[in-house]
């Protein structure tokens, strides 16, 4: 089986390599990929949308439909993780608690468990002692990571950035918090319900902006129709519309990343985890 696999892969590789020799050279300005559609985007971005970052304008304006459904795909992935892991809720048969003043660890069984308090603290089954340096350092740098994420979202028109990148950075900051402390502390600050609500809200902002354009008598996702609300002329309205849509993408991506992490790290139980 392994030899057969290796032979197949080698055959595929050799065939691809032979035909790749017919492809245009690396960095060829006259290659077919960069002579048909992309010159239009490069030359007309400024007059159509007033956004200097061509990637942002193509992403949210020229190819707005595509990006809307990519956001929907991400939401669907988050929902799929939820439905695969979270529906079957098995009760954990026992829990571990730690009595802080004496340092005694207790294993408790049954239906009723004591409330978490400073004296009587819940522990994971595979508990490792908190590392003071790691948890304090993460607490210090997480606000800066989040401010950077907001900058990446807001400055996507003029520099590399946008909703997807900023959303992933924002999600990573919460995941870092969950890793450096524990899953329960993270869920207390950003609950699963919040994550679900935000991921739907993000897609709703995107689709809602498109639908609002319909109400103003233009086609779906044509932001220039929003000029009366957003202010400025029709070109600047496109620029502002792109920002609104990018914020929707960022909210959805942030929430889905956190949601998937919660479900995967605890195998759906969201009780004990990384």
């Amino acid at each position: 089986m392994k030899i057969l696999g290796k032979l197949t892969i080698l055959l595929c590789g050799v065939l691809l390599m032979v035909f790749a020799m017919e492809f245009p050279n690396w960095g060829d300005p006259e290659s077919p990929a960069s002579t048909h559609l992309s010159p239009y985007f490069i030359q007309h971005t400024m007059e159509d949308t007033a956004v200097p970052n061509i990637v942002t304008s193509v992403l949210a304006d020229y190819r707005g439909y595509d990006t809307m459904f990519e956001t929907t795909v991400i939401l669907t992935a988050g929902l799929a993780c939820f439905l695969l892991l979270r529906i079957e809720r098995k009760k954990i048969p026992h829990r571990y608690y730690r009595h802080e003043p004496t340092g005694v660890t207790l294993r408790m069984e049954g239906e009723k468990y004591p409330k978490n308090s400073a004296v009587f603290q819940r522990m994971d089954a595979n508990w490792v002692p908190y590392d003071f340096v790691i948890s304090r350092t993460c607490r210090l740098i997480i606000p800066f990571i989040q401010i950077f994420a907001l900058y990446v979202v807001a400055h996507g028109h003029h520099s590399p950035g946008g909703g997807f990148q900023g959303g992933v950075i924002m999600g990573a900051s919460v995941i870092l918090f969950a890793i450096s402390h524990n899953l329960r502390t993270s869920i207390k600050n950003f609950s699963e319900k919040t994550a679900a609500l935000f991921s739907v809200t993000g897609v709703f902002i995107y689709a809602g902006t498109g639908a609002l354009c319909l109400l103003f008598g233009e086609v779906f996702l044509n932001y220039s129709a929003l000029a009366p609300i957003l202010g400025g002329d029709r070109v600047m309205a496109r620029s502002h519309g792109i920002l609104v849509v990018e914020i929707g993408v960022a909210v959805a991506v942030t929430a889905v990343m956190i949601w998937i992490y919660y479900n995967l790290s605890s195998a759906g139980k969201q009780d004990e985890g990384l």
Binding site: S38, F41, I54, L59, C81, L84, L85, N263
Partner: peptide, 29 residues
């Protein structure tokens, strides 16, 4: 300026790839 289209396509593909990787791992669990 380099061709912006592949960057747009791959930008979304990377994030969608992470999300679908999550689904694959959930199935594995």
């Amino acid at each position: 300026y380099i061709n912006p289209l592949p960057h747009v396509l791959m930008l979304t593909a990377i994030v969608v790839g992470v999300a679908t990787l999550g689904v694959a791992l959930a199935l594995a669990i």
